[in-house]
Write a protein that binds this DNA or RNA. Structure first.
Length: 273
DNA sequence: AGTATCTCCTGCGTGC
DNA sequence: TGCACGCAGGAGATAC
């Protein structure tokens, strides 16, 4: 599932192929995503130039002069660029194509339809989905003091807490599991009980794990033209996610798997306290 | 306000 | 080979 590193890799992959180009049309085949694709979207986009592709959390923002196209990949979404002239057979769940004036296509594919494609006039940060978001995990604003201050008095498990997009964006289930392992913090520990020093360690690992995944994604997913555009998983070796029952890579004790907020949570009972 | 639960959806693995 | 089933999960909506 696209986590922040996949979304950032997607952004970097598609940006050079569509930025600066004029949109000729939007072709929608299936409007029923997480929210219906707005009926006015085709007319909003036609004839407009794409000024750039940005990212906020896991939302991709295609900037045009009068507003932004907001795209989320949900659980199973992907975008691929189809170069002008190349024929790329339409697959099931290819829900829309953004067609450029030079015939380059940006094709959205999403089997589970948990993603979305929405419109927001400037400023895009005022869209209800974006307005209350916390800082970017790799930005300076996400630091130990922020995590410490925000978590005081909170009884929620630290894993649930760091996955809350109002606290910090883009920390999905996989990377929350991984960062907590590296930080040596038990996922069920009450967020409000974490010391400033441990917040420091956790923040550092969240940044490190995400940055490393982006680096790996950058090499794995260089080619966004052709192919199936499926990001898949990163070649990085996961320490705990998906390894319940298998030996801890640090102490060899079998990893424990539990459910936390309906999410699969894996940790080492010995290394994480 | 904080917390827990429900919800959307399809592909995949499992058991018979 | 086919079917029913359970499960996975981002994150907003809803109910306490």
């Amino acid at each position: 599932m696209p986590e922040l590193p996949e979304v950032e890799t997607t952004r970097r992959g598609i940006e050079p192929h569509i930025s600066g180009k004029k949109i000729s049309e939007l072709i929608v085949r299936e409007r029923r995503l997480r929210w219906p694709i707005p009926a006015s979207l085709e007319s909003q986009l036609a004839g407009q130039e794409i000024l750039g592709v940005e990212r906020r959390g896991k939302y991709l923002l295609l900037r045009i002069a009068k507003g932004s196209l907001i795209v989320h990949l949900g659980m199973s979404g992907s975008l691929r660029v189809i170069a002008a002239g190349s024929d790329d057979a339409l697959k099931t769940h290819d829900h829309f194509d953004l067609v450029m004036a030079d015939s380059t296509r940006l094709r959205y594919h999403d089997p589970r339809r948990f993603g979305c494609a929405l419109w927001q006039a400037h400023p895009v940060s005022e869209h209800p989905l974006l307005a209350a978001l916390g800082p970017e995990p790799l930005a300076e604003e996400f630091n130990a003091e922020h995590l410490f201050a925000r978590s005081r008095g909170r009884k929620a498990p630290i894993k649930t807490f760091v996955m809350d997009s109002k606290v910090v964006v883009g920390v999905g289930n996989i990377y929350a599991n991984e960062a907590l392992f590296f930080a040596g913090i038990h996922p069920k520990r009450a967020a409000g009980k974490l010391s400033l020093a441990r917040c420091e360690v956790l923040v550092a690992w969240i940044k490190r794990v995400l940055a490393q995944a982006i680096e790996v994604g950058g090499t794995t997913l260089r080619d966004f033209v052709g192919g199936d555009g499926q990001p898949g998983y990163f070649a990085q070796s996961l320490q705990v996610y998906g390894r319940g029952g298998e030996p801890c890579r640090s102490c060899a004790k079998p990893l424990k798997e539990i459910r936390l907020g309906q999410r699969s949570t894996v940790y080492c009972t010995q290394c994480q306290r």
